[in-house]
């Protein structure tokens, strides 16, 4: 049983116009076995939260804490966070030329586990996981994400989630840009990882569509860098019917515009 705890988190980025505060005091506690959905309009800071947990250098934490079972996550480097059990499925996975998927997966697995996986079972595990996610076998020989379509990249993110078995998975808009078939395949992958036991999930999404396949225990609504409403799965249903419009009061004009587009 693990706990990922975020307390009063404030995060800024440097822009050409100066420092801009994106997260304005976010608190959230996730435990093993739970699925939390974070929903909100574009520009509300959802992805910033995901990248900050993973340690992307662009985001500066100005105050607040993130702890994993009491350990200070903010004091860890990016790779230490991953080895501690945090996994970020990225919204836009980058292509890494010259590094084959096979080599990458094995190197990462070795780093996370602290020892090289047994070659025979590992190859079998990778093949089986790829088949379940309907990823062509020849992807293993290709370079990391190189030439993959948007949907293929998202499947490969979930492939890693299943192989690396993190304590906490943060899915940053994994559903965006997927057609219904791909969405199902990806959701099944997340559910398998969840059922396998010791994982908590933070599911960041703009749409309610993925919540038909991945059932959240808690829903948090993000507007303008803060959680404005929290509830159970019924909140997601309500958002599906009403959208984000009713949160517009009091929020900035940009948020209203973004919500209206959604």
């Amino acid at each position: 049983m693990s706990t990922l705890e975020i307390k009063d988190l404030h995060v800024s980025i440097d822009t050409e116009q100066g420092t801009k505060e994106i997260l304005k005091g976010v608190s959230l506690t996730i435990k093993t076995g739970q699925t939390h959905a974070i929903m909100g309009p574009n520009g509300s800071g959802k992805s910033t939260l995901a990248s900050t947990i993973a340690g992307h250098p662009r985001y500066k934490v100005t105050s607040g804490t993130i702890t994993l079972d009491g350990e200070d996550v903010l004091a860890m480097t990016v790779d230490q966070r991953a080895r501690a059990g945090l996994f970020l499925a990225m919204q836009y996975p980058v292509e890494v030329p010259g590094v084959s998927m096979t080599n990458f997966l094995r190197t990462a697995k070795t780093a996370i586990d602290g020892e090289a996986p047994k070659l025979r079972t590992w190859t079998k595990d990778v093949k089986a996981a790829m088949a379940q996610l309907r990823i062509d076998a020849d992807f293993a020989e290709r370079n990391v994400n190189e030439g993959f379509s948007g949907g293929e990249k998202k499947r490969v993110e979930i492939l890693q989630l299943e192989l690396f078995k993190p304590k906490f998975a943060i899915l940053d808009e994994t559903d965006s840009g997927l057609d219904v078939d791909a969405l199902k395949v990806v959701s099944e992958g997340v559910n398998r990882a969840h059922e396998a036991g010791n994982m908590g999930t933070l599911l960041i999404t703009h749409y309610t569509r993925i919540l038909r396949y991945i059932k959240p225990d808690f829903v948090h609504v993000f507007v303008d860098g803060q959680v404005v409403e929290e509830g159970g799965p019924e909140l997601a249903d309500r958002l599906e019917d009403e959208g984000y419009d009713r949160y517009a009061t009091g929020a900035g004009a940009a948020t209203i515009a973004a919500a209206a587009q959604a």
Partner: peptide, 26 residues
């Protein structure tokens, strides 16, 4: 590319290993 390094490090790969992976591949 910093984003390449971030991606590899976000999968637990230490920075020096990540850099070598990219250069070796190149």
């Amino acid at each position: 590319d910093d984003e390449h390094l971030f991606y590899l490090m976000a999968r637990g790969i230490p920075e020096d290993v990540a850099r070598r992976l990219v250069v070796r591949g190149f």
